[in-house]
Design a protein around this nucleic acid. Structure first.
Lengths: 205, 205, 205, 205
DNA sequence: ACATAACCGAGACGGTACGTCAGGTCTTGAC
DNA sequence: GTCAAGACCTGACGTACCGTCTCGGTTATGT
């Protein structure tokens, strides 16, 4: 949850009209609808306002930028889709995770959202931190899997877990963003197997 | 070279005033200057026009978008910086390449350019193809190194060269874009060594 | 009053920031100033925006074109200068009116405005109607004078009032636009007298 | 004839390629075609160049502005349509002339041209003189008719011939430009008769 | 016959202004 | 205190034509 997520937290409230949860829902729904229909690049705050029937000033009150708005609109769905497998086998855990990761290809509007959010993180420094925080929560899952593997002796004790985590997410984002090759949930297992071969043996020279 | 790059190619010239190479140079210089001073996100076509003294309409005549303009402004410098090592050793070749790749960290405005171009590729479909083409030229270098390694028997014959190439570039871009960890030219050798351990042996299960 | 003239009319207002009368005044003043200093032909929406300190989009919100803007800027002053004499004598009424009409020659920027508006009416069909409406309000004054003359028996009952009105305004505009002869407020009486001689007697053959 | 009209006059010519009459004709034809199809306001030098297949620079060599171009494109046709009646009767002469004048209503593109030229005369001082000169040639015809009438004693010796001429042309242009009433060739006779009633008798007061 | 000179096409160039879009802020009155 | 409405300033967009300026190439002379 990034901002304005929960209408019943923050300051101690001293009186006055309460935040309209209807307005919040309308905004998030309109955002998802526009994301699906026109893509991230064509979403505008003005468009969301018009579509949702919520005033622009109200939207700005709760979300500082388009990127934060999309992030929240996405977050629940994405959160639900982030498995934290712990089967006792690194290979199995990673395969489950990577398959699920690549399965985003089946939800075009989520791909759109990921690509657009990554774009905005480059263009608006304010948002970069928010995206980084969100990315870290996902990295943590993989790092945990790998650490458990090291502890259990499945993986080389010298393994750089952070870099290994990048080897899981890096190619995913790279393909997602460049589009030179499709994401293949079905091949995740084979790719993980190849990677693990390297993680098991100490690096040569 | 992306567009309007070479004033002396394309159509056979049947008449008409010749393209001003001075104007071209002024525009590219102004673009690089603005990139360095203010960052990709603050570059505007209008700003480039003002800075370069070249009319906006002339800029639009040769470059359809900011992203294509930056890409060309970058391309020569980057091209010069893209080594194509062929030492006879995959490990050595890849280490040279990856070190150089990560060395972009020493040139902040080039990092800015790479990040901005990747962002625009997400937001403007017209540009995505151009970026993809450019990316392919860089992938080709790594693919060639790996293919030579397979031929020479240094690497497993079953190696998926395209995916292996993604394992070189993916983490690079991922770190560049997310910023969760720094790029480390000095560690490139160790990371490559770890990767190659996996490429040498057939995948396990 | 042509458009956006009165900030307190139109829709019943259900909310929203109220129109800034300061902005409106600044725009109209800037328009008149530019008209006087540089002439109608050199007025631009951008120039008015710069001069007035009001945003271009705000100007476009209230006036669709330069011509409508000038028309409104002029209208109050002109309205004040449009007498509706009713002395009981057609000759006297018309002489008063025609003298005043030709007196525009003493206000060069108003001449400029009239000429420019007539020009734009030719070039932009959207504006032609607006100008025609405005012209009709002025014609109505003369038509009324003539009609009263017919009723009183001062003028021939067969007189075509509309055409007679054109005989008042036609030469005025013709001289104003072509510039082959000056406008002469002092000669208006003599010209009217000549005209009336024809209006009193039925047409010959 | 305004400019570049006759390809065989001006400087004594000592050699060099001769002006292409084909190019001249193409330009004039294209101008008339665009005038008819899209109206004066949408004619552009660039459009004429594209339509005619003649280079923009060639057009500018021979015609300094759109207005001069249209004037020449029109001039031959209009010249042919300008009668100089001399029947011995002022009423008859003027009726012939005025009927023909109003007959322009049957040729929409000529109306367009007249309206557009008058507009440009307001906006571009350089052109105002050219239009005025052309207008004078037409006024001269009417003035001559009236002067003959005065000499023959048909009209009052005190008649201001110039103003009387304005009474013929003024209402014509006024209606043409404002569009509040149609031009009526068939009513020209009646209107002239009414006017002449005033011209015959000395002005009253 | 051949140099001279003016013409012509093509099209790039520096400009100016256009009219539009979206951003983000502010003001108002209703709830 | 929040909300819908909507006016406001700001900045940049991408386009259209303007009138000028090279270019390369084409014709008529006139010596």
């Amino acid at each position: 949850m990034v901002d304005g997520g929960d209408p019943a937290n923050s300051a101690p409230r001293t009186g006055g009209r309460v935040r309209s949860s209807a307005a919040r829902d309308e905004v998030l729904n309109a955002t998802m609808a526009l994301l699906e229909e026109q893509g991230y690049g064509k979403i505008t705050m003005e468009g969301v306002a018009a579509r949702s029937g919520v005033a622009k000033s109200t939207i700005y009150r709760w979300w500082k930028s388009k990127a934060l708005l999309v992030m929240e609109a996405q977050s629940e769905a994405v959160a639900r889709r982030m498995p934290e497998p712990d089967t006792g086998s690194v290979a199995e855990d990673l395969t489950i995770f990577a398959s699920e990761l690549n399965r985003v290809v089946e939800f075009p509007q989520r791909m759109e959202a990921l690509r657009g959010m990554m774009a905005d993180a480059q263009l608006y420094p304010d948002f970069a931190g928010a995206l980084r925080d969100w990315v870290q929560t996902r990295r943590a899952v993989v790092s945990a899997i790998l650490s458990r593997g090291v502890e259990r002796g499945e993986l080389d004790a010298d393994l750089d877990v952070e870099y290994a985590t990048d080897l899981i997410f890096g190619p995913f984002w790279y393909r997602l963003l460049v589009g030179h090759a499709p994401l293949r949930p079905d091949l995740a297992g084979a790719e993980i197997a190849r990677l693990l071969a390297g993680f098991r043996h100490p690096a040569a020279d």
